[in-house]
Design a protein around this nucleic acid. Structure first.
Lengths: 135, 135
DNA sequence: CAAATATAGTTGCCTTAGTTTACTATTACT
DNA sequence: AGTAATAGTAAACTAAGGCAACTATATTTG
């Protein structure tokens, strides 16, 4: 299956652009959305936790968190440690999360229209195998 | 199939990082590689042609081409028009292309190890459908 | 044909997203 | 107590792309 990566990658820009366009009215981008998503799944988290989860260096996460705090979508409190920061979505953040979640799901539906659920599930399985092999 | 985009996107950074690491010894990145790939398929091309093909604004292509010219991987000649530029791979460029092509194919094989060819083909079909729906 | 319009490419400036290095503060190890 | 490791931050850098404005040519049209 030569050229597999090329097929994969040809999809990236259209997808990320559609997502960023969708998120723009909320002053979000996909990279900020990732943090909100993580917090929606985990209630609260530390910065290293998120850094490790997405495989992105800590300074990148610091800045995302700072931005989201400015927007009022999350708050930070001291964690277990006195060096650790525990961040969580605010009520506003949760509201915005839900609204975006709905729109992203709608976009996903549009994008996957006409593709059988089984096919999509198999594709996800392929993604997971690829991910395993690439790390 | 909620969260499909997330599965897709989780693969992007590992893949692009592996590719860029592989291309780094040749002073290339995936964005530069794309231009070389196009020229390998088409012998010669104009900048707008490549711009349209990858959906990237002209200035971005201008800069990629300038960089590849510096590296001696491509040359430009006047096109049909006197405003148009016709670019093509140099002998060196073709040599580098082949070398990278081999390595990328090897990487693809590693990444897709243990996945049935049929599955990969179906995945590519899904990519194409998604792409059609997103544009 | 002359003037207006369109096209190819370039330059400059900006934004987004990420990395590396080096630092502070705190905690854990021995 | 002294050394190591860990959490977070700041500064400086790079890669990649977008937008606006420009030049030079070509095409259209009045």
């Amino acid at each position: 299956m030569q050229g597999f990566f090329r097929y994969y990658l040809s999809l990236y820009r259209p997808m990320i652009q559609a997502l960023n366009q969708l998120l723009h009215p909320y002053e979000l981008s996909y990279s900020l959305w990732q943090v909100m998503f993580y917090l929606h799944e985990h209630e609260q988290a530390s910065l290293v936790e998120i850094s490790a989860y997405y495989g992105i260096e800590k300074p990148g996460i610091t800045r995302r968190v700072q931005r989201l705090e400015e927007l009022g979508y999350l708050t930070s409190a001291p964690g277990n440690d006195r060096r650790e920061k525990s961040i969580a979505l605010t009520a506003e953040g949760q509201r915005i999360y839900s609204e975006c979640r709905q729109q992203i799901t709608a976009l996903e539906r549009r994008a996957t229209a006409g593709i059988a659920t089984e096919q999509l599930e198999q594709t996800v399985t392929v993604f997971q195998q690829l991910l395993g092999n690439l790390k």
